Simulated scan of single mutants.
Amino acid sequence: MTPPPHLTTIGFDADDTLWQNEQFFRQTEEHFISLLADHGDRADIARRLLEAERRNLRLYGFGIKGFTLSMIETAIEVGGSNVPAELIARILAAGRDMLGHPVETLPDVADTLERLAGSYRLILVTKGDLFDQERKLAQSGLAPMFEAVEIVSDKNTATYERVFARHGAGPARGMMIGNSLKSDVIPAIEAGSWGVHVPHDLTWALEHAEPPLHEPRFRQIERLGRLPALIDEIEGR
């Protein structure tokens, strides 16, 4: 059997792979539900919010701004004419607070990037609000580690075909690392790359997917610090 070609490019997801993200959405959602406590059941409000988010993805994309608009839409849907302007203002304030939250990098991130940077082209592939993702990358202090940054509207097979062709020797010699099976791992494998899943304690409901255990280029590690050893194994070192 011909050995797989050596890796040239490694892509990293950002939110909940390099730094915390979902926990702030969960906290804001809990606050939002509390604000609407007089207008409905907590579980029903949470369900309606998720439905609004799913509906609005094609219009607003991923990120805090779309989430804030979905909260406002849900508040109007749940409360109708009884929703005061003050409540809408508090929802907007909650969204602004999210956009200003300090960046909290996850364990092993800086050390892992430093160990790989000299041997591979490292790129950041993330989706969400452009300004917010740029802000978080700058505050994280990790920007110098990456040779390229791709902030995309969505992550699918075509995304990884394009990214790994632009910044490397094609998908077959690329690897994507992330916490989302749906966005980071499965479409990268479909493009011909390696896909490495690094689970996070919290995963957004719309990012759930079954692990592609039958795929020879699928791997899962419990923490990012295991990545250099995994790459050595794949490269036959």
Rank of each mutant, 00 (worst) to 15 (best):
L18G: 05
E210V: 05
P107K: 06
Y160V: 10
F32S: 06
A172G: 11
G100T: 09
R237N: 08
I91G: 02
G80Q: 11
K155L: 04
E215P: 01
S81T: 12
I72W: 08
E222D: 13
G95A: 13
G174T: 12
R166M: 12
F12Y: 09
R219A: 14
K182A: 14
K65L: 12
E77M: 06
L69T: 01
E215D: 15
H31L: 08
L59T: 14
R58C: 08
N179L: 02
V109K: 09
L224C: 05
E147F: 05
A117M: 10
L57M: 11
T68H: 08
F218L: 01
N56S: 14
R166T: 15
A110P: 07
F24P: 00
L57F: 05
W194F: 15
K136L: 06
E161K: 12
G61V: 09
L69I: 01
E104F: 07
E53S: 09
T9W: 01
L106Y: 08
V78Y: 01
I88Y: 07
K155T: 13
M1V: 15
R55A: 11
G63L: 07
Q27R: 14
G195F: 03
D15I: 05
S183G: 09
P228Q: 11
M71V: 01
I231C: 01
M145A: 14
L87H: 02
E190K: 13
I10E: 12
S153E: 13
